[in-house]
Design a binder for these strands. Structure first.
Lengths: 328, 328
DNA sequence: ACACGATATGAGAACGATATCATATTTGAA
DNA sequence: TTCAAATATGATATCGTTCTCATATCGTGT
């Protein structure tokens, strides 16, 4: 089915059918005949031909590090809801946390192909920045802040600070299991928030009790073991993610420590896995799905209004203790 | 940048550039000049124009019920790996478990737009079947079996049967928390497997101890409460998913029961959340990511070879007890 | 020397839509 | 009544590719 066949069936020119489809002037009479023809045939315009002419693909590229992660998939759920409501479709690029893959997709989407990009980022290299600078379609970065770009991110610094403060109410010897500082959001900012809370509380920061792992449960177990070997008397641990916290808790139990009696554990992210270990992990709830929705809305604004200016959106959070909100 | 500009820079016709890009006859000399021009300009062919001409979009539509689910996102990770390796891109449609949304996307993708569909299905209505029958592009169904269609699914029946057998080694009064039979895989087949194991073991099946919930943790808690009210002496429970099992376990603990001392709990799916509750849930490991990869490969075969015949692939499983494999 | 297949090239049509332009016809305000 | 604006329509060009076809050159076996 093409627009030509519809035009013929309805006895009008193809230009009129096009006008019908794009709210131009069409008389009641022809409008009705066209409607009928389309209904009968189930005609759908070829999006490729439309794109070729209009340069609008109605496609949004979503580049992400790992789809099978609770955090990321919640963001994508939010993104998907907003995009589909606004008539956009979602082109998914799963990079498996591989920089080369990220750059590959960033390049692939560069010229044509998509009207805009949502980039769920972890670590920015100079090459990322270079490509992003040259971009012709709007980009919104999700999960990290980057100067000069529209972005939506979590308030990692204050979240880490507040939950650490809370932990220090009864903790005396704090430890820290984090991730690389190259991940500004989850690494650097959380670490700084942790350090700020210690300073404010007048608790000495012992660098040997701050270790770096990755985002996995296994990493939490392993690093907890290291920490406990260094300082058997530590009595509270901040973990950069809930996964890590679950791993750390698992090791402590194994080592015969009671939680939170002997050692307090706090996490970040409020992921489902943290919600059903016993005792329940004290954590920070981030609004991942909402941030996905916000980022998508922001992108749509930029795609549809070329005067739209870049924006930064820092999302709030909630401290969760034993399953309920303590503070915002 | 268009093919015309490249042609001009290289001093050849646009047909020659096209041949260069599609491995036709081009002399060494011109080949070199074209390569240079492309390199200098960073030219990338417009995929829309290509599609318009060739009718190949190199796009695969993936329709799924809920991206923020461990099971589904693992399948998508597998799908994504295979597709991107073979030069396809992934158009994601998240239906939020809404039949109308499923049908909407099934219709949207019908005519043009994608070269093939991967449909991660839960419940088939007659309308689904009607649309699928009329499909012109290849479809592979993931997670369910459907007569006459290519599909990849788990061996839910035997998985449920074997894990139930295991549970009955020490269990005497079994209960069952499942999901609707309209979900053939997770509902009907697991229920039948459970029933078959009871029959084989000569344990009477008490219909009042078989209840139906949904896939959530909350549902597990609630249904466990109901069951315990009906039969306080029940000593083992089969749960159709790990989420449900975690919920059931949480309620039992609350009710002062010890696991597995007083009541054994088994789940299905080996999801991360089941791996870190204490005691660890006995469950069935399904190869979700692998099944996504298999489904994607199957679809590619069907898209690229029109003589390809429909196939069914039933995936194996492993029983996991305390974190290690017991049987296959 | 000839013929034939392989190699090499470009002109022009086609894919299915929208945009531009020219041209009627109908309104409605002065 | 008149004339400009609003409404209505179709012919034709165009988007950036690939495909078909016509044509030319080259190598090689007879």
């Amino acid at each position: 089915m093409t627009i030509n066949e519809i035009a013929e069936m309805a006895g009008v020119s193809r230009a009129t059918v096009s006008r019908y489809l794009n709210q131009g002037y069409v008389s009641q009479e022809k409008r009705e005949r066209i409607r009928e023809a389309i209904e009968k045939t189930g005609y759908q315009p070829s999006s490729q031909a439309q794109t070729l002419r209009t340069k609008k693909t109605k496609l949004v590229g979503v580049i992400l590090p790992k789809i099978s992660s609770d955090t990321v998939s919640r963001m994508v759920a939010g993104i998907s809801d907003v995009l589909s409501k606004r008539g956009y479709q979602l082109l998914l690029a799963n990079t498996n946390n591989d920089t080369e893959e990220e750059l590959k997709y960033l390049n692939l989407f560069k010229d044509n192909q998509v009207d805009g990009i949502l980039f769920i980022a972890t670590i920015f290299s100079p090459r990322h920045k270079k490509i992003l600078k040259e971009y012709r379609v709007p980009v919104v970065i999700l999960g990290q802040r980057l100067d000069g770009f529209s972005c939506v991110y979590q308030d990692d610094y204050h979240a880490a600070m507040q939950i650490t403060e809370r932990m220090l109410k009864s903790g005396r010897i704090p430890a820290y299991i984090g991730v690389t500082d190259r991940d500004e959001a989850a690494g650097l900012n959380r670490r700084k928030g942790f350090a700020a809370a210690l300073e404010a509380a007048g608790v000495p920061l012992r660098p040997e009790l701050m270790v770096e792992g990755d985002f996995s449960i296994e990493s939490g177990q392993e690093k907890m073991k290291e920490l406990l070997a260094i300082e058997p008397k530590l009595d509270c641990v901040f973990c950069a993610t809930d996964n890590v916290a679950v791993g750390a808790a698992a090791y402590l139990k194994e080592a015969g420590k009671s939680i939170p009696g002997d050692v307090q554990i706090v996490g970040t992210g409020d992921t489902p896995i943290g919600r059903y270990v016993t005792p329940r992990i004290t954590t920070v709830h981030f609004f991942y799905k909402t941030s996905g929705m916000e980022a998508a809305s922001m992108l749509i604004e930029q795609m549809e209004d070329d005067r739209a200016v870049t924006k930064e959106l820092k999302m709030g959070f909630e401290i969760m203790e034993n399953g309920s909100t303590i503070s915002g």
